[in-house]
Design a protein around this nucleic acid. Structure first.
Length: 418
DNA sequence: CCTCCACAGGAACAGGTGGGAA
DNA sequence: TTCCCACCTGTTCCTGTGGAGG
């Protein structure tokens, strides 16, 4: 047998094994809506109960839904509203469900524009993504919605993001829109990860938005196990999962506030790693590898796409870390940052701006910035690095600006904290 | 109890981009 | 083309503040 032949054999061999792991991988993606939602019966019933007046031609209450990430809020709402749409056909009540994710659609203008554009096939016009005055879009919205008798359910997912950035004007407008409509009725379902977000709301808005509240508690490990098992049945071929795999994925995800999304990602990536290795079964060690890979990949993606000055600020924190100068305060980070800018011949930003960049890095989980008061010695942030310095440097190694910085071994030459 | 540090973080504004409309 | 608008980055100027040390 010649080399070419062996190569071809192993090529097919690998392919065969690869086929053995997954049956329907897409079942493990979070965009997939399963036909059954384990451990969410109570929430489904509550939501159905709140929405059922629609079928009798009455306006349902607005709903406020909250729970941490990966507790099944979005998937449950989508499921229930889908069912409602099916039922509404039977009773011939026209219902439109508009789903908006406020992480993407994150201004009052975009929310309104998206709603108007939802009806573009019916109304025949479209609002541009920028350009119009907001109140014009709003009156166009009323016109379009009110064109006939119907119920419009607007789902605002991650509504906290929208409010934190823009205040509660949108909600104020949307919650009282019914008083200005003749034919149509609008109700709103707000979904939030953050319970404290209610503090940002005006009392009137709050009382009208949270006429009904539905809470999604985190899943515990055994519930996560049920969810994974249900999906694994369709996703994987029989017998390819080692008995320890699902419990481990569930346990790891349960540790992080019972996040089902995380659990599904772990299971999927474990399968992918096993597949790539050409293994016949998914084993515990694949899950461990998957966890590392997920963590590393998301962090790397975030850091790579950071704007230049955020990278420089982060690099300043790395330098401080390597000088054992952490936790540092804002002033110290700013001093190092300015030196880095000078070394690279880049115009530094003001401290005010850098302070905001530090907050952004904190939000991304790359660093940790806690506001502390040191009494006589002022009020500042205590800044720490959340990932090992060498990992950050490795990610920077491919960055055009920072390469030179690493090459000149900035840290040692400058002797910043001798 | 008061002071005063070293900032936090809000407000107003400037300048630029990218898009639609007349 | 020119004008308008939303939105972003960034600056300047500013007021507010928790708590150690006097």
């Amino acid at each position: 047998m010649n080399n070419e032949q062996t190569y071809l054999d192993s090529l097919f061999e690998k392919y065969l094994h690869a086929k053995r792991i997954f049956k329907h991988k897409e079942v493990l993606r979070h965009s997939y809506t399963p036909k059954e939602l384990p451990h969410r019966r109570e929430q489904i019933e509550t939501l159905a109960h709140i929405l059922v007046p629609v079928l009798k031609g009455e306006t349902p209450s607005n709903i406020f839904v909250y729970g941490k990430t990966g507790t099944g809020k979005t998937v449950t709402i989508k499921f229930v509203t889908e069912e409602l749409k099916k039922a509404s056909k039977k009773y011939s009540v026209p219902v439109d469900v508009i789903y908006l994710n406020c992480e993407v659609v994150d201004t009052q203008y975009r929310v309104l524009a998206n709603i108007v554009n939802y009806f573009k096939h019916e109304s025949g016009f479209e609002v541009p993504l920028v350009g119009w005055p907001t109140d014009e879009v709003y009156s166009r919205l009323k016109e379009v919605i009110d064109a006939k008798e119907r119920f419009v359910i607007i789902i605002l997912d991650e509504i906290d993001k929208l409010i934190k950035k823009n205040g509660d004007d949108i909600l104020y407008n949307l919650t009282r829109i019914n008083t200005e409509l003749q034919n149509a009725r609008v109700s709103i379902i707000g979904i939030s990860n953050d319970l404290r977000f209610k503090e940002y709301l005006d009392a009137r808005v709050l009382s009208s938005l949270s006429e009904e509240e539905v809470v999604f508690p985190p899943y515990d490990a055994s519930q996560l196990r049920d969810i994974l098992e249900q999906r694994a049945k369709y996703a994987f071929n029989d017998g390819v999962l080692d008995a320890a795999v699902i419990p481990l994925c569930a346990a790891l995800a349960a540790k992080e506030h019972g996040d089902a999304r995380k659990a599904l990602d772990l299971l999927r990536v474990s399968g992918e790693i096993a597949e790539r290795e050409g293994a016949e079964k998914v084993l515990e060690r694949h899950v461990r590898k998957a966890q590392e890979k997920i963590e590393h990949d998301t962090m790397e993606e975030v850091i790579k796409t950071l704007p230049l000055h955020s990278k420089l600020v982060l690099y300043a924190v790395v330098v401080l870390d390597e000088n054992d100068a952490l936790p540092a305060n804002t002033g110290e980070v700013y001093v190092v940052y300015k030196e880095i800018c000078e070394a690279l011949d880049v115009e530094p930003l003001t401290q005010r701006r850098v302070s905001d960049l530090i907050n952004e890095l904190d939000m991304l989980g790359i660093i940790n910035a806690k506001v502390v008061s040191k009494g006589r010695y002022g009020r500042t942030k205590e800044i720490r690095l959340n990932i090992p310095a060498f990992k950050v440097k490795n990610m920077f190694r491919r960055d055009y600006h920072l390469q030179s910085l690493l090459a000149m071994d900035f840290l040692k030459q400058r002797r910043l904290f001798a």
